[in-house]
């Protein structure tokens, strides 16, 4: 892709140095990655509570009970925390 682009628009002499460097940049991140990781952690925690809370609420609705919503919420929160630790908790 980079090659084709450069041939097509190859007039900007200043630009090509940077393009060479850019192609050497590995497909990895460090700076903004931390921010994204933080947001992912939050979204996993939210997802756990929302999903298992909703299942508990559905069970309650179906069984006419009041037990499963809190159970689902707590289980979902616990699963979210478990998964966050499991996925993002290892030391680099």
């Amino acid at each position: 892709m980079g090659e084709r682009w450069r041939v097509k628009r190859g007039t900007e002499g200043r630009d090509t140095d940077k393009v060479h460097n850019a192609d050497k940049v590995p497909l990895s991140t460090d700076q903004s990655d931390g921010f994204d990781k933080g947001m992912r952690v939050v979204s996993v925690l939210i997802s756990g509570i929302v999903f298992y809370g909703a299942i508990g609420w559905g069970l309650d609705h179906w069984l006419n009970s009041v037990l499963w919503t809190p159970v689902g919420l707590i289980l979902g929160a616990a699963l979210g925390v478990y998964w966050v630790i499991r996925k993002y908790g290892q030391a680099q």
């Binding site: 947001m39 992912r40 939050v42 979204s43 996993v44 939210i46 997802s47 756990g48 929302v50 999903f51 699963l79 979210g80 478990y82 998964w83 499991r86």
Partner: peptide, 24 residues
């Protein structure tokens, strides 16, 4: 992860990756 945890995590990952992240 072991298979019995996998089934618990899959909806989490689905919600997180396809709904919660764009919504937030």
């Amino acid at each position: 992860v072991p298979w019995y945890v996998t089934w618990l995590i899959i909806p989490l990952e689905f919600l997180s990756n396809f709904i919660v992240r764009p919504a937030t």
